[in-house]
Amino acid sequence: MIYMKQDYLKKAMIAGTAAGVVSGLVKLGWENILPPRTKERDETNPPQKLLQQMGIPKSITHLTYRYSGHDLPITSYLVHFGFSISFAIIYEVLSENRQYLRVGDGSIFGLAVWVAFHLGIMPAMGTVPAAKDQPFEEHLSEALGHIAWMWTNDVVGHELYERLSKR
């Protein structure tokens, strides 16, 4: 019995990790099509601001790497993928035993994460403006992006878990 539980957790964590990488790429792509913030508000994006609130200097939070002539925000990407992978693992571990979490193939869960973080936690911390002060475009992009992100976690994570579970 203990072996089965450890085996389940290992497979769910592997599946969640892979799903989190893929869904993180989906969310980045989504934000290229429907940018959630104005160019001015993106000069210090929420991951960068959160790290600065934690005392990490701007020289690290705005660290970039150069690829194909573009300066890309490596620190922001690390936070972005860390968040995506963490939530994908949590979702996969919980939802394999609690199927009700899969209602809407993860879309309801994704909306709940958006509400909790973008309308509640981050505004309360001062990382982003209060929900009423965020533009409609930001709400639309983030809400739909979180649906696409968690749907991807659901599909990729569950499929990979099922493949890992076949003997």
Rank of each mutant, 00 (worst) to 15 (best):
V128F: 05
G110A: 02
L94H: 01
T61R: 04
I14R: 06
I90V: 06
I14K: 08
L111S: 06
V155E: 12
G82P: 03
I89P: 05
Q53C: 00
I85T: 03
Y8C: 09
E142T: 07
Y100Q: 15
A130H: 09
A88F: 03
G55R: 06
L34E: 00
S68M: 15
S76A: 15
L111T: 13
P123Y: 05
D133K: 00
A148S: 06
K132I: 13
G126L: 04
P35G: 05
T75L: 06
D7Q: 11
G16F: 01
S95E: 12
V21T: 03
Q134R: 07
R102W: 07
D7A: 07
T44N: 12
D133N: 00
M4P: 13
F117V: 01
L50R: 04
F83P: 14
W151F: 10
H62T: 07
G16Y: 05
S59C: 08
H62S: 15
L111V: 10
R41C: 06
L160Y: 03
S86Y: 07
Y65E: 07
H118W: 11
F87E: 08
R37W: 14
R163T: 06
P47N: 03
L140C: 14
G82R: 01
A112D: 11
K49L: 01
R163V: 06
F109L: 11
L51W: 05
R163P: 00
D7T: 04
F136I: 13
G126Y: 04
S95H: 08
P57Q: 06
G29C: 01
G104S: 05
Y91A: 02
Y65D: 10
L101A: 07
W149A: 06
